[in-house]
Design a binder for these strands. Structure first.
Length: 468
RNA sequence: GGCGGGGUAGCCAAGUGGUAAGGCCGGGCUCUGCAAAAGCCCUAUGCGUCGGUUCGAUUCCGACCCUCGCCUCCA
């Protein structure tokens, strides 16, 4: 099956082909976090989905150029800095650093660039774009000195979200100052400085102020990737208004179609309901790590359901992920032992029977892909039990695992056995050889206390790290 | 009110106009000094409800119920 993805613009699954005339480079822009706190696992669902997308494209031979922005100026960051009494940059810096650590914990491949909204060159570009929009009659300065995009000037506005602008119902999120706009749907490109912003301001042709949220993505995406993108990702809640606004601004500036494929992932829920601090079901990645869960376990949970379906996150699910991963670990370890003798691998899968890759080609059907992997695990375990797997075949299977793991990145943490642990193991082996079971059991407990599980198998005792 | 996701075993979750992948849990077996671990095997006459089309519907059509979300700075 040819590679195909769901496109929010058309609400259809469409064959994917990059803009690159050589068909090699894929340009992706992904909306990143607002750094006013630690990102929560719902945020990371989107980033893990984007990671899966990138890695699968790479599996298929594309070179992915991906950019992810960091929003480091907005109402929330300004408020946070004020409450703490520190400059904005000092307030956001630790959250930026934490975010990068979290990406690493979840084994998310870093983007090629992580531009920040406050980067001088990007602020300059935002201002330049706004000037162009004003000159082109797509934007205007209102009485409150802010500059707004005139949605009436862009006939496609509402196309991505499939919203009929006449039927929009006012919500509580509209601020009182917005009646200064020509239309209630007009959104801010440049926000005039006010008291609450403190010293957070940039000079502009419209007076001091700061960029609106939407324009930052348009400026940074076009600056780093060009006027046209292959794919733009985000959570479904970004469809409207954020991505709608991005299309309007960017296309009015460039006169070109901004994005070919819009891909949005559904929300994460926790225990069957929206994650919210008031429900007591709000978790950052750090909360889970502190509870003893591993990054790859969280990654597995976030990865294992299709990205366009709501994902219900539970601790039962996390425990299930742990068990499933151990099954994969054990399988890989068995293969590795059987493959230890040198030799040539027998290519696997034979021909084009790559069910795993084929499933992902179909709009990242990761559930089907994992299903095929576990089928393979069971079949080959059975063959290994019966001693029917040749070393060459085993090496081929290991090679296949390496390839699909370049997408999944679910391998176990490498665990070198420390000398003292090895010494305890030696001692226990001696006790067992002497059939001194009491001593053997004491040493097993000792190993366990130090975080290692001893398993006596017919090939001898094996050590693995205990969980938590 | 408008727009859009979902409802498949105890839990999570693929999928198809022809009789339900996979994972977790549970049960059985094997291995084993014991234990643990691991491996194998088993586990939905059923796919929200009610109608319709069809030789045949979980799949297509219609109505309805439930649930989650978006509707102007939430991934």
């Amino acid at each position: 099956m040819a590679l195909q993805f769901h496109n929010t613009l058309t609400r259809r699954v469409e064959p994917f082909a990059p803009l690159d005339p050589d068909g090699r480079i894929v340009k992706i822009y992904t909306c990143g976090p607002t750094v006013y706190n630690h990102a929560h696992i719902g945020n990371f669902r989107a980033y893990v989905f984007e990671d899966l997308l990138q890695r699968h494209l790479e599996y298929r031979g594309f070179t992915v150029e991906r950019v992810m922005n960091l929003t480091d100026v907005d109402d929330k960051t300004i408020r946070g800095a004020r409450e703490k009494g520190v400059p904005l940059a000092d307030f956001t810096a630790p959250f930026k650093e934490a975010f990068f650590q979290d990406l690493e914990t979840l084994r998310i491949k870093p983007a090629r660039a992580f531009p920040c909204a406050t980067d001088a060159e990007h602020v300059a570009r935002m201002i330049a774009m706004i000037e162009k929009l004003v000159a082109g009659n797509h934007a205007y300065q209102a009485e409150d000195k802010s500059v707004y995009f005139r949605i009436a000037s862009f006939s496609d506005y509402g196309r991505l979200a499939h919203l009929n602008l006449e039927e929009l119902r006012p919500s509580g999120r509209i601020h009182s100052d917005e009646y200064e706009k020509e239309s209630v749907g007009d959104f801010a490109l440049w926000k005039a400085h006010d008291e609450a912003d403190g010293d957070v301001k940039w000079e502009s042709p419209w007076g001091p102020g700061r960029p609106g949220w939407h324009i930052e993505c348009s400026a940074m995406a076009t600056a780093l990737l060009g006027n046209r993108l292959d794919i733009h990702c985000g959570g479904v809640d970004n469809i409207f208004p954020h991505h709608e606004a991005e299309i309007a601004q960017t296309e009015c500036c460039t006169g070109e179609k901004f994005v070919n494929f819009w891909m949005h992932c559904a929300h994460l829920m926790v225990d069957g309901r929206k994650m919210a601090k008031s429900f007591g079901n709000f978790y950052t990645l750090r909360d889970l790590i502190d509870k003893g869960w591993r990054g790859r376990e969280v990654r597995y949970v976030l990865l294992s359901a299709h990205y366009r379906l709501p994902l219900n996150f539970t601790f039962d699910g996390l425990a299930g992920a742990r068990s499933a991963l151990q099954r994969l670990d054990e399988w890989r370890r068995r293969l590795a032992e059987l493959a230890s003798a040198p030799g040539t691998g027998e290519p696997f899968p034979a021909g084009d029977e790559d069910k795993f890759g084929a499933a992902l080609d179909d709009d990242l059907n990761v559930s089907a892909a994992l299903g095929s992997l576990f089928d393979l695990v069971r079949e080959t375990n059975r063959a290994m039990d019966g001693g029917e797997l040749s070393p060459a075949r085993v090496r081929g299977l290991l090679d296949y695992w390496e390839r699909i793991n370049s997408i999944l990145r679910l391998e176990e943490e490498s665990s070198e056995i420390p000398a003292e642990i090895a010494a305890l193991l030696e001692e226990r082996n001696a006790a067992r050889a002497a059939k001194d079971w009491a001593r053997s059991d004491v040493l097993r407990d000792e190993l366990l206390a130090r975080g290692w599980v001893a398993k006596d198998t017919k090939e001898g005792t094996k050590l693995t790290r205990s969980i938590t």
